[in-house]
Design a protein around this nucleic acid. Structure first.
Lengths: 154, 154
DNA sequence: CCGTATCCACTCGGATACTG
DNA sequence: CAGTATCCGAGTGGATACGG
């Protein structure tokens, strides 16, 4: 079943692991749902709230965390003749999570899809075939999962 | 900053979204840390516990969820002359999360690495160059993030 | 070892209401 | 709209102890 060799501990202590740090930061139900919505273009407080149906206090807190961490930028935008409004936009740091959430979407399509076809799929601009998450080498060529080796530094 | 067009709602309601389902299932600090450890080869209750330093009750609960969901398989293995022991091994469903967690690792290396070089990197068996999580088309050729387009079904 | 059982303090999520 | 202020109950995290 598992080709992963038995280990008593992970090779990197969680306190010093960037994966663990990422999990501490965004590994949270509401936070991830906020990022999901943001990647779909949602930007405003009440839009997030009606999308997530979470307590406003919780939403407020999570948005603060994401702004502080640099994933979201809080800025004000103004439509002429209307009152200025704050909005939360993804920064480059936030946008770079997109491939990961797309990967998770496709994982969900496979394992949690309840037999129904995926409601959303992803293609390369100008093409029609589906794309998928994978590993590539420096030349952009795919590396099969069983070919992957982890290398510790030092 | 954000090329993502403004939206009031996400195109797919969360109740019907496989990404949202995935988030409900594994979008949790302890759950993700368990999966992280499991992908590094940890299999036993006490090893998880000393790795995560979480309450044993919490660990027990999370493991049950992951087993029920099919991400982990609880099985018994026996070393001759020793007492049989249960262990939690990743199923195919669990292993297929690996690209996603490696992608998140590399995201963390870039944005949360505090300037230090990545403590762990990934290569192709027999080669030396680093590999990275990315998207590929049907031919196994990389698709750059800005080339990705979402397509709704129907 | 592998858990389950408690106890406690605390945060979180849920609901509602109230202001700039 | 965009939040902050409460209140409340449930679940979680933390520590410790105890049985298979």
């Amino acid at each position: 079943m598992s080709q992963i060799p038995l280990a008593r501990r992970s090779p990197i202590p969680p306190e010093n692991c960037n994966l663990a740090r990422a999990i501490e930061l965004i590994g949270d139900r509401w936070t991830l749902l906020i990022l999901r919505a943001a990647l779909y273009g949602v930007r405003r407080f009440d839009d997030f709230q009606s999308e997530l149906k979470c307590p406003r206090t919780v939403l407020s807190g999570r948005l603060k965390i994401l702004v502080d961490a640099g994933l979201l930028t809080k800025r004000t935008y103004k439509v002429p003749g209307k009152r200025a409004r704050p909005e939360y936009v993804l920064s480059a740091m936030g946008i770079s999570l997109r491939p990961i959430l797309i990967g998770l979407t496709q994982w969900g399509d496979v394992w949690l899809g309840q037999g129904e076809p995926a409601p959303i799929s992803f293609t390369k601009a100008g093409s029609k075939g589906a794309i998928r998450a994978a590993f590539v080498d420096a030349d952009g060529r795919e590396v099969r999962p069983d070919q992957i080796r982890a290398v510790l530094r030092g």
